[in-house]
Computed example of a mutant assay.
Amino acid sequence: MDGMPEHEQDDQEREFDLKWADNAEHKEPSARARMLAARWKENPPGPVPFRADPEHVARQHRRSGWISTVVVLGIVAAVIVLLGYINFRGSY
């Protein structure tokens, strides 16, 4: 050997391999990219808008905001009633 510990040689070889792979001119696509390319070749996807309709999003957000508020307030009221009931029964 050249006087270098074995693990250092492995590290240098691995580093060289990574640099070599990063500098490759042609990189093979991932399995998912190949699968999608094959699927879309037979059945291309339809057009997708870049952004959703702002009015639909605002309407949905308003509705879900009220529902969330009612659910949270209902849970808080139920906990208060339950704690009051437990406290009332414990006092006798």
Rank of each mutant, 00 (worst) to 15 (best):
W40N: 04
I75R: 03
Q9N: 09
L18K: 05
P29T: 06
E13A: 08
R51P: 01
V81E: 03
Q9V: 15
Q60V: 04
L36F: 12
Q9C: 00
P49F: 01
E8R: 14
E13F: 12
R89V: 02
F88S: 06
V48K: 09
S30Q: 08
G3S: 00
L83R: 08
P5V: 09
V57W: 12
A24I: 06
V72Q: 08
Y85V: 14
V79H: 04
R34Y: 05
A21I: 07
R32N: 00
H56M: 05
A58S: 13
E42T: 15
G46D: 07
R63T: 15
E28P: 02
F88L: 07
A58L: 13
I67W: 04
F88P: 02
I80M: 11
K27H: 11
L36H: 12
G90W: 09
R51C: 01
E15S: 11
E25C: 00
R59G: 00
R51G: 01
S68K: 04
Y85H: 10
D11C: 08
A37D: 08
V79W: 07
P47L: 00
A37N: 11
R89E: 03
L73P: 11
M4R: 10
V57S: 01
T69Y: 13
I67K: 06
D17M: 10
G74F: 07
G74L: 02
H26N: 06
A24T: 04
G65E: 13
F88Q: 03
G90L: 03
R14Q: 04
D2C: 09
M4T: 15
G3K: 07
R62K: 13
N43F: 08
G3I: 07
K19T: 13
D53W: 12
H56G: 03
A24P: 02
A58C: 14
H26C: 03
